[in-house]
């Protein structure tokens, strides 16, 4: 499989260098894979930070900026960043009002964030953590490590970041983040596997007439392999699963994301959006905003996910608040 890369072992390092080259408002903390705002942490705001394995671009560093994240830590491809990098990020972004870590629910991420937070707390930083587990494909049961955190995480970044920008305290920012987590669900599908730079081959094989439902964002195999479907059938399958999980119904208001996995053209995402809108209209669910694009990807995977988040006035205000980051800009 061909890729526009140099040495696979330099993948993350060179990507981050290119990113800060393109966005002078971002910088790397020296000797780390942590990206922060060049103008320093806002001293009058809680710092919202996130991080995780690489390969999900624009997640995570693409959401660093005014009104969203104060910092983002990048691990190796699909591998949680290490605890000491996370500790460094927390220390460096704290402006005195504490730090909220937005963590996706993977054991590696949770363990490393836990340790990183402990280390920073020893240095006197106030830290809270919110764990996002929006993937409805996997039942939370004795037999799993809980649900995974996927594309809904971006909405947590947005709302928590906006709340922090309002000057709210750490408890309030964490409350808002938890509120999003409680109201968001996502389900994804893969048409092709991704190819990691180091392995150079598909993580799993799919035949020309197969798709994989319930995939995560790490090229993990999904929960069910099935025959190919039309865009409308895919939209229905994903949307049904999410709506069912959230129990959203007529008269409620939502924000949706039709998210590309990295290798899917934008035009196909719009075709899916068409059906999502049609369905939500038919069910009497009010769509406050519909995001379409590559928000949380899995390298070059062809596929998509559908995210629905139940919102109220507090959340819509936070979602509409201005922000300026490489991957998301909202004008005043």
């Amino acid at each position: 499989m061909k890729k526009l890369i140099n040495d696979p072992t330099d993948y993350v390092d060179e990507m981050l260098d290119g990113m800060v080259a393109a966005y002078p408002e971002l910088r790397r903390l020296p000797e780390t894979e942590v990206v922060v705002r060049t103008d320093g942490p806002p001293t009058d705001e809680v710092a919202v930070v996130s991080g995780g394995g690489s390969g999900h671009e624009p997640t995570h560093a693409g959401y660093v900026g005014d009104g969203m994240l104060a910092g983002a830590a990048a691990g190796a491809v699909f591998t949680s960043p290490t605890a000491d990098q996370l500790a460094e990020m927390v220390r460096e972004t704290d402006g005195g009002r504490g730090v909220l870590c937005v963590v996706k629910n993977y054991e590696g991420d949770v363990m490393n964030f836990d340790t990183g937070a402990e280390m920073a707390e020893l240095d006197g930083v106030e830290v809270q953590q919110v764990v996002v587990d929006d993937d409805v494909a996997v039942e939370d049961s004795l037999y799993t490590s809980g649900r995974r955190g996927v594309c809904g995480t971006v909405l947590v970044h947005k709302c928590a970041g906006a709340k922090a920008a309002e000057g709210a305290d750490l408890d309030e920012v964490a409350r808002v983040a938890e509120k999003v987590v409680d109201n968001v669900g996502t389900m994804g599908v893969a048409l092709t596997s991704c190819v990691t730079p180091e392995k150079g081959e598909p993580t799993f094989e799919l035949a020309e007439d197969e798709i994989e439902l319930g995939i995560g964002i790490h090229g993990e195999p999904g929960v069910e392999r099935t025959g190919t479907m039309t865009a409308d059938e895919v939209a229905d399958t994903l949307l049904d699963a999410v709506l069912d999980d959230l129990g959203v119904g007529s008269g409620e208001e939502v924000v949706t994301i039709v998210n590309g996995m990295g290798g899917t053209p934008l035009s196909e995402l719009y075709i899916l959006q068409r059906r999502v809108t049609e369905r939500l209209d038919a069910e009497g669910i009010d769509v406050h905003d519909a995001w379409v694009g590559d928000y949380m990807t899995s390298l070059d995977m062809m596929g998509c996910s559908v995210t629905v988040c139940r919102v109220d006035d507090e959340l819509t205000d936070l979602l509409d608040a201005p922000t300026e980051t490489p991957a998301l800009t909202v004008r005043e």
Binding site: G75, A76, T79, S80, T82, G108, M111, N112, T115
Partner: peptide, 15 residues
């Protein structure tokens, strides 16, 4: 190992 591996294996092995 804790500061170089990351993921689940880093804290589990290293820690």
């Amino acid at each position: 190992l804790v500061s170089e591996v990351g993921g689940a294996a880093g804290p589990l092995y290293g820690g």
